[in-house]
Write a protein that binds this DNA or RNA. Structure first.
Lengths: 86, 86
DNA sequence: ATGCTATGTAGCATTAATGCAACATTAGAA
DNA sequence: TTCTAATGTTGCATTAATGCTACATAGCAT
């Protein structure tokens, strides 16, 4: 649910949100948001925004996250929702 | 070479630029920038900026470009430069 | 209960990505 | 040569992503 006029966005194409499995992959590795943020080099709130899908990341950030979580970009981000588990 | 105070960026991490093979994949399909831009749904100049690597795209845009060019994101974008051909 | 850690919410500042318009240049086609 | 298509350059406006600070909440220890 909306929480400020600042974070409503979610890409420039509202009909095509980007789904992600960041939280799933992060917790699988036993990392807190803060720890992942440190590895990736961003503010820990940024990880939160992404996990809550309040906006989608830049490609640079997506690539760094994928590397930190040891996953392919396509395994972490998709236009189609992920089923739980895989 | 700089061409305005507006397009110097290239991600928030200047030490880690994102390389891409958009132009190669686009010309392989015989598309002009305008045509690719239309498929992707962005301004044709945006494709130019990306091909010249003046900045790196959002993840949403990267995903759309990959789909339009029938490639995986990881085949089109990388932190390490691509060798020509592959 | 108290404290600590992780996470959510709110608000605002800054910057990068994108749109867009106008003009220059280059290569080819006719 | 002239015309046209494709691409490059400049400049500026707008918006989304990110940083950052502060406070709230919930769970889990001790």
């Amino acid at each position: 649910m909306l929480h400020s006029i600042y974070a409503i966005p979610m890409s420039r194409n509202p009909e095509e949100p980007v789904y992600n499995r960041i939280e799933e992959a992060r917790t699988f590795l036993g990392l807190s948001r803060q720890e992942l943020a440190d590895k990736v080099g961003v503010h820990y709130q940024t990880i939160g925004y992404l996990e809550r899908q309040e906006y989608s990341p830049s490609l640079v950030l997506a690539l760094r996250i994928a590397k930190s979580l040891e996953q392919e970009v396509s395994e972490l981000f998709s236009f189609t929702p992920f089923k739980k588990g895989k």
